[in-house]
Amino acid sequence: MTTLIRSLIRRSWPVGLVVLALAVSACAEEETGRSADDPIRIAMVGPSASNDLAFTQSMVDSLNRLGQEYNIEVDITDGTFVIEDAAVAIRGYAEDGFDIVLAHGSQFGGSLSEIAPDYPDTYFAWGTSRDTFGLSNVYSYSVKSDQGGYINGAMAAHLTESGTIGVVGPIEVGDIKAYIDGFVAGVASVDSSITVNVNYIDSFSDVALAAEAAQAHIEAGADVLTGVSQMTVGATGVAREHGVLWFGSQSDQTPLGEEIVVASQIYNWDYQLGQIVEDLLAGEQNGRVITADFSNGGLTMAYNPNFALDADVREAADAVQAGITDGSISTGIE
């Protein structure tokens, strides 16, 4: 140990030189303003990878669709699961003059409430949440994810033969909790004698834990599973191995298992993004909560084309979806 320390000390001077040289090379920064013909500059900060087949990807896909309708320029920082890194990116985008900055993660709200007041001309949006901190430049978006949960749950109730269904959840928050509560209610709406085991694994990212949770559900007799967030790729692997059916949420999860994924509830943020862009184009700031549901197209169902879903079950699901859309069916959540 001592020899190591001594020689380390002797060799450390180049580090100082490099730092000095680089510090000297610092240069000035630039500012930009937007004129009518310029594209709308939208920045997004997302917690996981842009192609996570879950929460982050749902927003990336929506931004791509938005690009077909509006003249926009998009910059994405993904994989910022550390909240402070996301905060730095959010402030950085606002500083760089982006028109709209999306803080795509409910855990970013604490930082955003401190950053947004410093940039009154920037439009901020964050979610899922229902809190704008009373600021006119903050939009918050949320989804009635309990609706798709309810539809998935109803289908799951029709498809289970063992009478036991398992749910692999990450952390009991926001749209995730709503989805799972809706799912449980959906199952009960068909057959209240079915057991639904819910397991929150306390992690958004631990796929190994998710896999074991799925395994535990199957060992407890579950023959249908559902789950939310990017860690579910672990659970779907186990479901595939055991031929257990899977219901997805957030993004279309069919690629995770063509033979077992029945259907997924998809978040389309197009509706909320569209409203914010329209406000921006009109030069207004009406910071508010925008909620997506099946009636405004913010939520849709995606059925796996390769899964031979029983026609009766599909019909029942469509009926539930229609009922939810026109308001005749309530999930009973909130």
């Binding site: 699961f81 550390v82 730095v88 604490g110 930082s111």
Partner: peptide, 12 residues
Amino acid sequence: SEGHRLATDGGA
């Protein structure tokens, strides 16, 4: 921190 609070991302 920007958020001025103690937080966790739920990960390790």
